[in-house]
C-alpha cells in the first residue's frame, strides 16, 4: 500500500466538514472555534495534551455532543441534532477511551450485537432457531466469523469478555465497531495501555481496515511514533484550540506543536 496514492485519491471527497464550532461545559471551554474536515478514506489522527478536547471533538463528530456554536456538514448536508442511537444508522461506529464492552457477553456475542441494527426481528423464529430466524442468524454469524478471523481472536470467541486481558478487550471492541460495517470509524485511544507487540497488531488492523474496506478512520492517540506511522493527516488540539493540521511531517516540525507538548505557553 502506498500512502501517497491514497492521499491524492482521497482529495476529491469530503465526508464531514466541521465549521467554527465551540463547545463548553458550564464555564469550561472544551473546544473553541475549531474547523476540521474529514476526507473520505483517510486516516486522521487527533492529538494533543491531556484535557485538550480530543474526546470532546470525537463526540462532536459522532453527534453525542452538540456544540453551542458552529455547524457540522455530513456528506455536504447540514447535520441536525441526532438521537444517540441513530448515529450508528448514519454509518458511524466508535470505540471508547475507557473500554465499553457488554461485559456479560462473550467476545462473539459482543461482535454480533454490533450488527443488531442490520438484523430483522422475528421473535418466534429466532427463539427456536427455525426458518427466517435461523437463516438470518447464520448469515450474520458468517460475517462475524470473518471479523473474528481478521482480528485473530478465534481462540477467545466464546470467552466472556470480562475475563479477557486489556489488549484483547480493546480488540473485541474494535470488532464490535467493525461489525456495523461503518463508513466512518472513530477510535478513542485504541492503543492506550498496550505493549509494543499489541500496538503493532492494532496498527496493522487499522491500516488493513482502511485499505481493504475504504473505511474512513479518525483516531486519537498519544503515542507519537504510532501517529506518525499510520496517519495520513494529523490535527493538533491544545486547550480546545486547533493549533496545527497537516501531514505528519509538517505537523511534527511546527513550533506551536513542539511548544504545546513541552508545556510552553
Amino acid at each position: 500500500m502506498s500512502i501517497k496514492d491514497k492521499n491524492t485519491a482521497a482529495q476529491s471527497d469530503i465526508l464531514m466538514n466541521i465549521k467554527d464550532i465551540s463547545l463548553s461545559f458550564g464555564g469550561l471551554k472544551a473546544l473553541l472555534n475549531v474547523n476540521l474536515h474529514i476526507k473520505k478514506g483517510e486516516i486522521l489522527a487527533i492529538i494533543g495534551p491531556n484535557g485538550a478536547g480530543k474526546s470532546s471533538m470525537l463526540n462532536v463528530i459522532s453527534g453525542i455532543y452538540v456544540p453551542q456554536k458552529g455547524t457540522v456538514e455530513w456528506k455536504g448536508k447540514l447535520r441536525k441534532k441526532i438521537a444517540p442511537h441513530n448515529i450508528a444508522r448514519m454509518g458511524i461506529a466508535r470505540t471508547f477511551q475507557n473500554i465499553a464492552l457488554f461485559r456479560g457477553m462473550t467476545a462473539l456475542e459482543n461482535i454480533l450485537t454490533g450488527r443488531n441494527i442490520l438484523m430483522k426481528r422475528n421473535l418466534f423464529h429466532e427463539m427456536f432457531y427455525i426458518g427466517k430466524g435461523r437463516r438470518q442468524e447464520e448469515e450474520h454469524r458468517k460475517k462475524v466469523e470473518e471479523i473474528i478471523d481478521y482480528l485473530e481472536i478465534q481462540s477467545i470467541r466464546k470467552t466472556p469478555v470480562a475475563r479477557l486481558p486489556y489488549g484483547l478487550q480493546k480488540r473485541v471492541e474494535l470488532g464490535r465497531a467493525l461489525a456495523l460495517e461503518p463508513e466512518l470509524l472513530l477510535l478513542d485511544e485504541p492503543m492506550a495501555g498496550m505493549n509494543v507487540e499489541e500496538k503493532e497488531d492494532m496498527c496493522r488492523f487499522i491500516l488493513d481496515v482502511n485499505d481493504q474496506f475504504g473505511t474512513t478512520i479518525v483516531l486519537i492517540e498519544h503515542d507519537m511514533g504510532v501517529v506518525m506511522d499510520i496517519s495520513d493527516r494529523v490535527a493538533v488540539l491544545d486547550y480546545g484550540i486547533k493549533i496545527a493540521d497537516g501531514t505528519p511531517d509538517k505537523v511534527r516540525s511546527e513550533q506551536k506543536v513542539i511548544d504545546a507538548y513541552l508545556g510552553v505557553g
Partner: peptide
C-alpha cells in the same frame, strides 16, 4: 441481545444503535 447489551452498558448500547 439488545436487552442484555443495555443491561451491561448504556453508552456502548447506544453506540451500536440500540
Amino acid at each position: 441481545r439488545a436487552l442484555r447489551a443495555v443491561a451491561d452498558d448504556h453508552q456502548a448500547a447506544l453506540s451500536v444503535g440500540i
